[in-house]
């Protein structure tokens, strides 16, 4: 394993901003071997990906003879953000996942993402691991832009996630890592799982199994170890229903994340801590699986409370 710097910039007071990757290569050269890049921490408040990259690096270190391709691991892209509990890039307050592809002549966040895009470019596959944010808890899921789904959907099915969400192309999302790399010819998948600022160990192991399974299928590792993966449900066969808060207050959930629910099941209450009143009780708009649930209790009118995936009425 080699540790490499992909970007470095001298900060004003006695410190360098350094973005690192670790590279795992086969002990002997293999012709036509593939390269995969695993990226996490583009948002500084998302740590689930760092746990997955730890587990993956640990597995690769323990199994050097299994490696047939190149595995690049970029655990902490927004290094300053991660170490200061800041989602965006500190100082500039910009979302790094809205400034791709960046450029050498741009501001520091643009230079950083440009260096990342150039370094990942040429990989056959890239996986960008996110953990929702501090507000929402998500089951392990893959987000796929319809524009690139022919190439990426078959890979997504190997990743041992519970849900594949194929969304329409949106212009504003052209400034993301995944769109940039997909455009550059790297099949790039976005994973969302868990919650911001925390680790969910079982999800970490679940995704590790999926990544190892995908790498085995793609010939990047060769091992006798069997990786059993679950079959994800897909947004192609149903609809996503949103539940936003109708008012401001403190959200108290009544269900567990990931529950199978029926229409009109109680999702939770919005309460007033000053008066002791329940301001609103929220009910499920549809049958399905509660794949997103509010984690941060303070809500304003409009705050996302839950997302439910259910079969569409026509399709049922």
């Amino acid at each position: 394993m080699q540790i490499m710097e992909i970007f470095s910039s001298k900060l004003p007071v006695g410190e360098n901003l350094v973005i690192k990757k670790s590279r795992f290569e086969p002990l002997a050269k293999h012709d036509g071997s593939k390269r995969i890049s695993i990226v996490s921490g583009i948002h500084g408040d998302e740590l689930e990906g760092q746990y997955v990259t730890y587990l993956l690096a640990s597995w690769l270190k323990a199994n050097p003879n299994a490696i047939r391709g190149i595995i690049d691991i970029y655990p902490g892209v927004n290094a300053l953000g991660i170490d200061s509990i800041t989602r965006g890039f500190p100082l500039y307050e910009v979302d790094l996942n809205r400034v791709f592809p960046g450029g050498e002549d741009e501001f520091l966040p643009g230079q950083l993402v440009h260096a990342l895009a150039l370094d990942v470019k040429g990989s056959d596959i890239a996986i960008d691991i996110h953990s929702s944010n501090i507000f929402l808890r998500e089951i392990p899921q893959i987000r796929i832009n319809k524009e690139f789904s022919n190439a990426t959907l078959p890979l997504a099915k190997e990743l041992n996630c519970d849900f594949i969400w194929i969304h329409d192309a949106v212009t504003v999302l052209e400034a993301t890592f995944s769109h940039t790399l997909n455009t550059l010819g790297t099949k790039t998948l976005v994973v969302e799982m868990g919650v911001g600022m925390r680790l969910t160990k079982e999800y970490g192991f679940q995704l590790l199994t999926g990544i190892l399974n995908l790498m085995k299928k793609e010939g990047i590792i060769e091992t006798d170890e069997a990786f059993e993966v679950r079959e994800p449900f897909s947004s192609e066969v149903g609809d996503v229903f949103y539940l936003n808060s109708p008012t401001s207050g403190l959200f108290v959930p009544a269900l567990s994340h990931c529950d199978i629910i029926k229409q009109d099941d109680k999702i939770g209450d919005i309460v007033n801590p000053l008066t002791g009143e329940i301001i609103e009780t929220l009910f499920a708009p549809h049958d399905g699986i509660l794949f997103t649930l509010r984690e941060y209790p303070v809500v304003y009118e409009g705050s996302l409370i839950a997302r439910i995936f259910g079969g569409s009425d026509e399709k049922n």
Partner: peptide
């Protein structure tokens, strides 16, 4: 604070808005 204090979203990236969406979209 520069942006919306709770979720730090930029109001000038929410247009034309959405009346059933998140707080800053509304």
């Amino acid at each position: 604070e520069r942006f919306w204090p709770l979720d730090k979203t930029n109001l000038n990236m929410m247009f034309p808005g959405y009346d059933k969406g998140e707080t800053t979209q509304r």
